[in-house]
C-alpha cells in the first residue's frame, strides 16, 4: 500500500503521480485531498484508492473498473460517465453523481445533491447502481435509461420527503427504489409506480447488506417490503409527439 500526500499538489500532477504509482502498487492511499479534480479518472480494474479528505469535481470520471473509498464528502460529478468500478463515499456528495454512468456502483452514506443518476444507462451485463443512504435533491434519475437507484432516506426529519422534485422525469429505462413512497407531486410524469417482485426484493436485500457492511450501519429498521419501485412508463416516451414532414 502506497501513501501519497496530496497537500498542495495540483490535480494534473497528482493524477500523473497516481498513474505512475499504480505500476508499482495498485493499492494507494491519498491523504490531504482537498478539492483536486478528476481523481481516479479512467483508472482500470484492480486499482484501489483510499481517499482521506474532500476530492474535487468529476472524481472517477470515465472510470474503467477501479475502486475508490472516500473518507469525507465528495463534490459534484462523482463517477461522471463512469464505465465500471466501485465508489464508496463515507459522507455526502454533490450534484450530478453518476451522470451517464454505464456500469459499476456508487454507494453514498449520506445525502446527495441534484440530478443524481441523470442519464444513467445500461448495456448488456453492465448495470450501474447508485445507492444513497440519506435523501436526494431534485431531478433524481432524470432521463434515466438504465441501471438502478436505491434511496434509503435515513435520518429524515418528520414530514420530509426523501427525494426532491421531478424524480424520474424523462425516465425511459432503469429502476428507482425509494425506501418509502415519494410525494406524488415530486414524481416526473415519465415515472410510474410498479410492484416489487421477488427479483427486486433479492436485489434490494443484497445491496442493503452491502451498504450496512460498508458503512457499519444497522439497517434492521429498513423493511424491504415497504420499498416503492418506480420505472419508466415506456422506453420510447416521446414517440408520439412528432409529426414527420
Amino acid at each position: 500500500m502506497k501513501t501519497i500526500d496530496a497537500l498542495g499538489v495540483k490535480y494534473k500532477e497528482l493524477n500523473e503521480i497516481i498513474d505512475e504509482t499504480i505500476h508499482i502498487d495498485e493499492n494507494i492511499t491519498l491523504n490531504n485531498i482537498f478539492g483536486q479534480r478528476y481523481v481516479g479518472r479512467i483508472l482500470p480494474s484492480n486499482v484501489k484508492l483510499t481517499i482521506n479528505g474532500t476530492p474535487g469535481n468529476d472524481m472517477a470520471a470515465y472510470m474503467s473498473g477501479a475502486e475508490i473509498e472516500v473518507f469525507g464528502n465528495a463534490q459534484d460529478g462523482v463517477g461522471n460517465t463512469m464505465n465500471n468500478g466501485k465508489i464508496i463515499i463515507h459522507g455526502n456528495c454533490g450534484d450530478t453523481a453518476g451522470y451517464a454512468m454505464r456500469g459499476g456502483a456508487i454507494y453514498i452514506e449520506g445525502n446527495a445533491g441534484y440530478r443524481i443518476g441523470i442519464h444513467m444507462k445500461e448495456y448488456k451485463e453492465m448495470k450501474p447502481l447508485i445507492m444513497i443512504g440519506g435523501k436526494a435533491g431534485d431531478f433524481l434519475g432524470e432521463y434515466m435509461a438504465g441501471g438502478a437507484i436505491i434511496l434509503l432516506g435515513l435520518g429524515l426529519k418528520k414530514g420530509e420527503d426523501l427525494t426532491g422534485k421531478y424524480c424520474g422525469t424523462g425516465m425511459h429505462g432503469g429502476k428507482i427504489y425509494l425506501a418509502k413512497k415519494a410525494q406524488e407531486f415530486n414524481l416526473g410524469k415519465e415515472a410510474v409506480k410498479v410492484k416489487l417482485d421477488d427479483d427486486d426484493k433479492a436485489f434490494l436485500k443484497k445491496h442493503l447488506d452491502e451498504y450496512a457492511k460498508y458503512f457499519k450501519k444497522d439497517l434492521s429498521a429498513v423493511k424491504i417490503e415497504s420499498f416503492v419501485k418506480y420505472a419508466a412508463v415506456n422506453k420510447n416516451p416521446y414517440k408520439n409527439i412528432y409529426h414527420k414532414l
Partner: peptide, 20 residues
C-alpha cells in the same frame, strides 16, 4: 445499440444541455 452502448430498441435521448 452496441456502438452506443445502450439497450436494444431504447430511445437514445440527448438532453438539450450537458447537465454538468
Amino acid at each position: 445499440s452496441g456502438t452506443r452502448m445502450i439497450p436494444l430498441g431504447s430511445d437514445a435521448i440527448s438532453p438539450a444541455p450537458h447537465h454538468d
